[in-house]
């Protein structure tokens, strides 16, 4: 990492972010700054609230019944939980890729890429260019260009996940949240997605949740370690993995965890 990192503006910032499912609290008072055009990894044991955390960043948490949030999330210093903010607009600016690839089963590969634009009622002027561009960006073009009319669900798992990424990117979000995007993929497909993250980093701010520490070390500039709904440690990835300040972080990354 170079000195440039210090100058990077926080794209997203959480202030005292708490999340609840009904009565039980799953996130407690998270303060975190996410740098623009960087990859930030969120790691931690399962059930530590890392998925909930990213779902709070584009107001997807509240989609689940009885789920609620307190605290603030600033997107370029504007609170996305402010009362007059429409969650729909937040989600257009902060895109999301889910753990399990979820292309629309009734749509073709082509229409899956356009789905976000079409569903948002946006006119597509030059669909062919946009399609090729979007699929090239996720390195899927060469694999699917001959059968763009096939169902999105006919692809392999890794291809489906890249299709979902392309679908999100077609909307040109500023931030891309990835909730364990590789957990259902084989190692080769995982490598493709990681390469992709590395390229996307230049134009997007990426937050990736992963249970795989090597993956965090490979792709992320910054890493946040969550444990039992709290942010334990946050810093540059190389620092977190080589000289963690907290004992619990060290235990986790060295695999000495109970």
């Amino acid at each position: 990492m170079n000195a440039e990192d210090a100058r990077a503006l926080p794209k997203l910032q959480t202030l005292g972010l708490c999340a609840f499912f009904g009565e039980s609290q799953v996130l407690g008072g998270i303060d975190l700054e996410i740098a623009e055009h960087r990859v930030t990894a969120v790691i931690g044991p399962s059930g530590c609230g890392k998925s909930t955390f990213v779902r709070c960043l584009n107001r997807m948490h509240e989609v689940v019944p009885h789920a609620r949030v307190s605290g603030q999330v600033l997107l370029e210093s504007q609170d996305i939980y402010a009362r007059d903010v429409d969650p729909v607009r937040v989600r257009r600016r902060v895109g999301m890729v889910f753990q399990k690839a979820n292309p629309f089963p009734t749509l073709s590969i082509r229409d899956n890429v356009f789905a976000g634009l079409r569903l948002n009622g946006i006119q597509i002027d030059d669909p062919d260019t946009l399609l090729e561009q979007s699929l090239r960006r996720v390195a899927l073009w060469d694999e699917v260009k001959d059968h763009l009319g096939r169902a999105g669900t006919s692809l392999s798992g890794g291809q489906q996940q890249r299709l979902c990424i392309a679908r999100s990117l077609a909307l040109e979000p500023e931030v891309l949240l990835m909730d364990e995007p590789c957990s259902a993929l084989d190692p080769i497909a995982t490598a493709r997605v990681e390469e992709l993250i590395h390229e996307l980093r230049q134009s997007y701010t990426i937050v990736i949740v992963t249970h795989n520490m090597q993956q965090a070390a490979r792709v992320a500039d910054f890493t946040a370690f969550f444990y039992l709904g709290k942010l334990v440690e946050y810093g540059r990835t190389d620092v977190i993995f080589t000289r963690p300040k907290e004992r619990r972080t060290e235990d986790y990354i060295t695999g000495r965890f109970g």
């Binding site: 030059d126 946009l130 909307l171």
Partner: peptide
């Protein structure tokens, strides 16, 4: 492409 940028400006 131009369409993308236009879409973006509408969205954002």
């Amino acid at each position: 492409a131009a369409s993308l940028l236009r879409a973006r400006s509408k969205l954002l």
